[in-house]
């Protein structure tokens, strides 16, 4: 039996909501902050992944599911996503080189 989430109360959901809102406000502030572009991209990327983890972990209850389901979903998206990139990127880079004199 996987861990049931019947016992979870609304407080968890609304705490997650608050954190997500705080992260959104932080991201908007970072986006317009006078800091180097590389740091902006890195910080926004981290905040984006944090938000995605919160939504999948708490709202989608992935944190409370069996590890085999978590791994299937995680590996399914990451591995096939990686394959997708491996196929697209070399062709993309070749086209970029061809289009520029």
């Amino acid at each position: 039996m996987h861990k049931t989430h019947t016992g979870l109360n609304y407080r968890l959901y609304w705490s997650t909501w608050l954190v997500l809102l705080a992260l959104t406000v932080t991201m908007i502030l970072i986006g317009s902050a006078p800091i180097p572009r590389l740091y902006v991209v890195l910080l926004l990327g981290l905040a984006m992944l944090a938000k995605a983890s919160l939504i999948s972990g708490y709202f989608m209850h992935l944190r409370f599911e069996r590890s085999v389901l978590v791994w299937t979903v995680g590996a399914g998206i990451l591995l096939t996503g990686a394959i997708l990139f491996i196929i697209i990127v070399p062709d993309g880079l070749r086209i970029m080189k061809l289009s520029r004199p």
Binding site: Y10, Y13, W14, L21, F59
Partner: peptide, 18 residues
């Protein structure tokens, strides 16, 4: 804000149904 809030209400709906 609207979409995150709707996700929170949806999670609450699941909790209530459980």
């Amino acid at each position: 804000f609207i979409l995150i809030s709707s996700s929170a209400t949806m999670a609450s709906a699941v909790g209530a149904a459980r």
